[in-house]
């Protein structure tokens, strides 16, 4: 629901990291338990960056499945559509989430150094 705002936030992070270099690709990682819809994020990104120096940067969204680890027996399980925090192996409650809440800019591909004035043409 807030993918436009999140795209603006991603753009700010990317602009800062790129430091004036042209960006061709941005990779973000989205945990399954982040309520971010990858298609909506990619769509929002296209019009947030349109007409800006980031217009040429494609957004690659990598989904991270939610994984829980049982405090009692140590078994790890990947959550599917149903989110439950009791252990599928031993039945103990209160497994802890070890992956699935990520939401970060991982890498950017840049043409550098600095502005691409030299070497162009």
């Amino acid at each position: 629901m807030h993918e436009v705002a999140l795209s603006r936030q991603i753009a700010r992070i990317v602009e800062r990291a790129a430091a004036g270099r042209r960006v061709t690709r941005v990779e973000v990682e989205v945990g399954q338990l982040r309520q971010v819809v990858p298609e909506a994020l990619r769509y929002a990104w296209t019009f947030v960056v349109a007409g800006t120096p980031l217009a040429s940067a494609g957004l690659v969204v990598t989904a991270v499945p939610a994984t829980v680890r049982c405090a009692a027996c140590g078994a790890e399980a990947t959550l599917d559509a149903e989110v439950r925090f009791d252990c599928g192996a031993c039945g103990a409650p209160g497994a802890t989430l070890v992956r699935g809440e990520e939401f970060r800019v991982c890498t950017i591909d840049v043409d550098g150094p600095g502005t691409p004035a030299s070497g162009e043409g």
Partner: peptide, 10 residues
């Protein structure tokens, strides 16, 4: 051209 690690929480 290079790939930069950013690893910044959105």
């Amino acid at each position: 051209r290079q790939r930069l690690e950013v690893l910044e929480d959105i």
